[in-house]
Simulated scan of single mutants.
Amino acid sequence: MKQLEDSFFSIFIIGLGLIGGSLGLSLKGKWLRYGYDIDRDVVREALEVGAIDKSLSIEEGLKSDIVVISIPVQFIPYFIRENRDKFYKDSILMDTGSTKRVVVDEMRKVDSFFIGGHPIAGKEKGGIKNIDSHLFDGKIFVLTEENNLTEEKKRIVLKLVRDIGSFPVFISADDHDYILGLTSHLPYVVSLSLFYYLMKKEKDKDNIFKFAGSGLRDTTRISSGDPVMSYGMIKTNLDHVKRFISEYIDTLKEVIDVIEKGKFKELAEKVKERRDRIW
């Protein structure tokens, strides 16, 4: 049995985009890094930039100490189902998906060690060309309380998280999806819907974006994220997202009422004070 103090554990990263590629790059010289991506050009570039040590097939890679699935979250349950009988009992199955309930539910059916994961890190632009060895530095790495790890296996997972510069936080899959629905998924929908609204207003006034400043760019920045990734996080957390959108619409109506009553300045001061204490 390999000991924690041994020089290298092995990791097999499935999906070599921004998160998977950055994960591999962050572990350079610390772990044996194997990788797989459906796009062979991505695999070639991952090898060229040193994000992985070697490309393996799915069957070969699943023998690694930790298997990390880093593909769009809507495809993770399908991947697990399709390969359910190929996972090794002594390996640790993990993911980096932006929602956790649908993933953990499928992981429970695998005869392997498992734990859900989500590094709270990213960039506006994704893909192997934008990977960063410091992407996870100082960031939270969510780990699900729903897992079947032994103490030994848990120490290996914690070593992985700390080796990329992150710090682990254990929460339930339910709490994760609720909180991220508020802090990530709802803001994306708000940003996207605002820009969509302005696109429709272009029909009334040409060149409205010519007069847009940094405020609009900052407010709508996340709407330029990868549509496939964004769709996945909304689809797999739809119950929470729909509820939060409805509540946010009520809040917009409340703000209209505040404006009409001449109390907008008080609201703006209240929000500014709270936000300044957070950031």
Rank of each mutant, 00 (worst) to 15 (best):
M1C: 02
L4A: 03
S7P: 09
G15M: 04
G17M: 05
G17T: 10
G17R: 04
G20P: 10
G20W: 06
L23H: 04
L27M: 08
W31L: 10
Y34H: 07
G35L: 06
G35F: 09
D39S: 10
D39N: 15
R40S: 15
V42I: 15
A46E: 06
A46I: 08
L47Y: 03
V49E: 02
V49I: 15
K54M: 14
S55D: 10
E59R: 06
E60I: 00
L62Q: 00
D65L: 01
I66Q: 00
S70A: 14
P72D: 12
I76Q: 02
Y78K: 08
I80D: 05
Y88H: 10
K89H: 08
S91N: 04
L93I: 00
L93W: 00
T96Y: 06
V103G: 02
V104T: 08
M107L: 02
R108V: 13
D111E: 14
F114D: 04
G122N: 06
I128F: 01
K139W: 11
T144E: 01
N147C: 12
N148K: 07
E152Y: 14
V161S: 10
I164N: 05
A173R: 04
D174I: 09
D174N: 13
D175V: 05
Y178W: 05
G181E: 00
H185N: 05
P187R: 00
Y188T: 00
V190Q: 05
L194H: 01
Y197K: 15
M199S: 11
K205C: 14
D206E: 15
K210N: 13
S214W: 09
T220P: 09
I222Q: 03
V228D: 12
V228R: 08
S230H: 01
M233A: 09
T236Q: 06
N237P: 01
R243L: 14
R243Y: 10
R243E: 14
F244H: 04
S246Q: 08
S246H: 10
I249Y: 13
L252T: 13
I256V: 15
D257P: 11
E260M: 14
A268I: 13
A268K: 13
K272P: 07
R274Y: 15
D276Y: 10
I278L: 15
I278S: 06
